[in-house]
Simulated assay, not measured.
Amino acid sequence: MQPKKYNIVINIVMAFVVTMFFSCQSKKTKSQGYLISEEAPIAEAFEVNLKYTDSGRLTAVLKTPKVLDYTNKSFGYHEFPDGIVLDIIDKEGKVSVVTSDYAISYQLTGLIDMRGNVDILTADSTHLQAEQLYWDKNINWVFTDYPYKSYMSDGNINEADGFDANQDFTILNSRSNDGLIFIEE
């Protein structure tokens, strides 16, 4: 009688072990190929020269040594860790150049954050320098709370602790200004 009970228990244990063994599955599938960290970008691009067009007209050229694509995140973004050079071309073909040491572009909000030696040289020779600058591409608005310095084409110089302006700088709200302004008598 004892061996019969022993065989029944062994069969039940074996059935349980076999069931557990075959019910376990790997979370990695063959289509995944590589395991990717959730912190890693889904794509990287090097030596990028990207041209933007609107209705067949070239409107901007973005050059950067490296782009990291994090659009797989819930708040997706593109990171430019080695900086950017952006040529903006207006309807008359005049070019304004924006450079920075670092930039990040958020997909959902349309906000671009540029940091480190931000430099803007407009088509009319206005030159603006700042440590950080934001551009809201949805409403074409530029702003910063950091100190900046601007050199106007007429020789005027303005320094302040922050500003906000439309992207053409025809509307400019500046805070705590110091500067040099030439006035004709």
Rank of each mutant, 00 (worst) to 15 (best):
L108F: 08
L133T: 02
V95C: 10
V95W: 10
V97G: 05
S153Q: 00
Y102F: 12
G155Q: 02
D82R: 06
N138C: 08
N72A: 00
T71K: 13
D145V: 00
G83H: 06
W141I: 03
T71E: 13
F75Q: 15
D119T: 05
G93H: 07
L111A: 06
Y77V: 04
S150E: 07
M152E: 11
D87L: 03
Q107S: 10
K149W: 10
Q107C: 11
G155N: 06
H127N: 10
D113G: 02
I88M: 07
Y151S: 10
G83S: 07
G83A: 02
S150T: 15
K137W: 02
V98D: 06
D136I: 05
D136W: 02
D87F: 04
K73G: 11
D113E: 14
T144D: 04
S74G: 11
S105Y: 11
Q129H: 14
I104N: 14
I104A: 04
R115F: 06
Y146D: 01
S74L: 15
K94L: 01
E79W: 07
N138S: 14
T109Q: 05
N117G: 14
Y106D: 01
V98E: 00
S96I: 12
A103S: 12
F80I: 08
V98W: 13
Q107Y: 01
I84C: 02
V97W: 08
H127A: 09
Y146E: 02
V95M: 01
F75A: 03
I139R: 11
L121H: 06
L111W: 08
H78A: 10
S100R: 09
Y70D: 05
Q107A: 08
S153W: 01
D119L: 06
A103N: 04
N140K: 15
V142R: 00
S105Q: 12
E92Y: 12
N138I: 02
V98Y: 09
D136Q: 03
A123F: 12
I84D: 04
W135G: 03
K137N: 11
K149G: 03
N138P: 00
I84P: 02
H78S: 15
T109E: 10
Q132F: 09
S125M: 02
D136H: 01
D113S: 10
Y148E: 03
I139E: 04
D154A: 11
V95K: 09
V97F: 06
F143S: 10
K91F: 05
N138D: 09
K149E: 15
V142A: 07
K137S: 15
S74T: 14
V97C: 09
F75W: 02
L128R: 05
G76W: 08
I139Q: 13
Y146A: 01
I88C: 00
I139Y: 00
K137E: 14
K91D: 13
N72G: 12
G155F: 01
S100T: 11
V95S: 04
I88H: 00
